[in-house]
Design a protein around this nucleic acid. Structure first.
Length: 495
RNA sequence: GCACCCAUAGUCUAGUGGUAUGAUACGGCCUUGCCAAGGCUGAGGCGCGGGUUCAAUUCCCGCUGGGUGCACCA
């Protein structure tokens, strides 16, 4: 673990951003964290950015259940074929059965393919007479590990916590069809919890067992993936693109216009390019510096089974380096076909002009919300020694957890100060009142949580109803009338 | 999950087979005119369980949590 990350963890804990692993009282469970008051405010602001951007691009928010019966996950492909076959050794160690056999075959230059089904896999392993890598005897049983968290609905229905929000978002397709008056394209988005029973979660908020996911889903007519109007608006935008070709030759991302990328066939359709652009815009709207963002194309091996086009938004985290933050997938008609098959319903739309029924294609932008939140803390917390100046959380002003602090210069000014505090709260700002310790110490406290403005009530306030407003970044103070505070603050915090 | 390493106030740390050092943060009082100011003072800790021992925070085992590598991350 690097030193920066250790400093960051102390910052997040002491300043009320992130605590855990929870429940701390009982020693904690890996992969679960609690957002403290400041962390929760920060995360909310990030979620508001998501809502604003998706809404202004004609996506509509929905909220679906987090627990769904097994049949849904059989249809989506999450259950069944996509669990890991595990074999135990005499000591209780657990190994990936298919990987063990694969390695064994590779080592002995055996060309036989590794069987897919558990019983055949077990038979093949027994035939090799192999042992576990730790020298222990392997047991005669293969069990499945699934990343899905199982639960029971009522007394006996098998259910699972959703491992992604997307599948849950697709299920009301027939309702969407009516709601959007049988016309494509239409878009929906969802922000909510997802659960993955990771074998060993690490890297703090970056990989949790319970996390917040956000995703936008655009339902398209497969023959109308050109989206000329939207494409025309974005085609000249330059994006940092790390193509698969560049990765193979270990090159750097290239700054390239979307149009140029289309010519090079990096994106499969105008619509997909639109999705890429939207995802990139989203991450810049969080205030993450452009140098910390790049787009990386998936290689043929890592591309998900359902996707025709696949890129990730990656963020540079000082703690962990380049980290996947968001996937943009053209999922084609895979999901709707699967659910049509399993539910025995026709999930299509009748296109008037062509007099035909089509199964819409789905373009997906999906990401863990906790990752950009972590990135903001990781990138913008700056620790300084007392000689160097104040340690500051340099979060962009509009994302700061607390908008403004109200500080009486001395305690004898507290009545006036509390009146100003009450007024600011009623105006809808998130405010903090602090009258303990020296004024300098209180400025530091606010800098540490990124509060942009400190309103100080001094002796002049009582004479002429003015206060000073201290700006976090410039540390400059400006005297303004109390009556103008709201306008001043409103200019930073648009609502 | 495997291998190795680690675990002391909120945070960071010293140290010990006889219950613990310091810094910082925090509370109270006094002082204080924009400063990470000063004085007095207060509260706060050996992750959990078992073993060895007269005695365990210290030694041993297990668990939990963290780090690194492998695996996993659909």
């Amino acid at each position: 673990m690097n030193e920066h990350h250790e400093t960051l963890l102390a910052f997040m804990q002491t300043q009320g951003f992130v605590w855990g692993p929870a429940p701390e009282l009982y020693g904690g469970a890996a992969g679960f964290y609690t957002y403290g008051p400041n962390g929760t405010l920060l995360k909310r602001r990030v979620e508001e950015k998501i809502r604003t951007l998706f809404s202004t691009h004609e996506f509509f928010e929905v909220e679906t259940p987090t627990i769904l019966p097994a049949i849904v996950w059989e249809a989506s492909g999450h259950l069944g074929g996509f669990t890991d076959p595990l074999v135990r050794d005499a000591d209780g160690g657990v190994w990936r059965a298919d990987k063990l056999l694969e390695e064994h075959y590779a080592k002995h230059d055996i060309k036989t393919p590794v069987p897919v089904h558990n019983d055949e896999l077990l038979k093949a392993i027994k035939a090799t007479n192999m042992q576990a890598p730790n020298g222990k005897k392997l047991l005669d049983e293969i069990t499945n590990h699934s990343l899905m968290m199982r639960t029971t609905i009522g007394t006996e229905i098998e259910g699972y916590n959703r491992p992604e929000t997307a599948t849950a978002t697709y299920l009301p397709f027939l309702r969407y069809r009516e709601h959007f008056r049988k016309k494509l394209p239409f878009g929906v988005f969802q922000i909510g919890k997802a659960y993955r029973n990771e074998i060993s979660p690490r890297q703090h908020l970056v990989r949790m067992r319970e996390f917040t996911q956000a995703e936008a889903q655009l339902f398209l007519d497969p023959q109308e993936k050109e989206m000329h109007e939207q494409y025309a608006r974005i085609k000249d935008t330059v994006l940092p693109l790390l193509s698969w070709e560049q990765q193979v030759r270990e090159g750097e991302p290239e700054n390239m216009s979307i149009q140029e990328a289309m010519h090079k066939k990096l994106f499969g359709s105008n619509a997909y390019a639109y999705g890429i652009h939207l995802a990139y815009t989203l991450f810049t709207s969080f205030g993450i510096p452009e140098k910390n963002i790049r787009l990386r194309q998936h290689g043929p091996e890592e591309k998900a089974f359902y996707a025709s086009d696949a890129w990730d938004v990656e963020l540079y985290l000082p703690s962990f380096g380049w980290t996947e933050a968001c996937g943009i997938h053209d999922r084609t008609d895979y999901d709707l076909r699967q659910h049509a098959k399993h539910s025995k319903q026709e999930l299509d739309i009748f296109i008037e002009e062509r007099r035909e029924k089509v199964i819409p294609h789905i373009l997906e932008i999906a990401f863990g919300v906790d990752r950009p939140v972590f990135a903001l803390m990781d990138i913008f917390y700056e620790q300084k020694s007392e000689q160097e100046g104040m340690s500051t959380f340099n979060i962009p002003y509009e994302l700061a957890p607390v908008h403004v602090a109200v500080l009486p210069l001395q305690k004898k000014l507290s009545t006036t100060a509390r009146n100003v505090y009450a007024m600011i709260q009623q105006q809808g700002f998130v405010a903090i009142y602090d009258e303990t310790a020296s004024i300098g110490k209180r400025y530091l406290r606010q800098a540490l949580i990124g509060t942009p403005y400190c309103v100080t009530i001094d002796f002049e306030t009582e004479e002429n109803n003015t206060v000073t407003v201290r700006d976090r970044d410039s540390q400059a103070q400006e005297r303004i009338p109390i009556a103008e505070l709201e306008t001043f603050l409103r200019s930073t915090y648009k609502r």
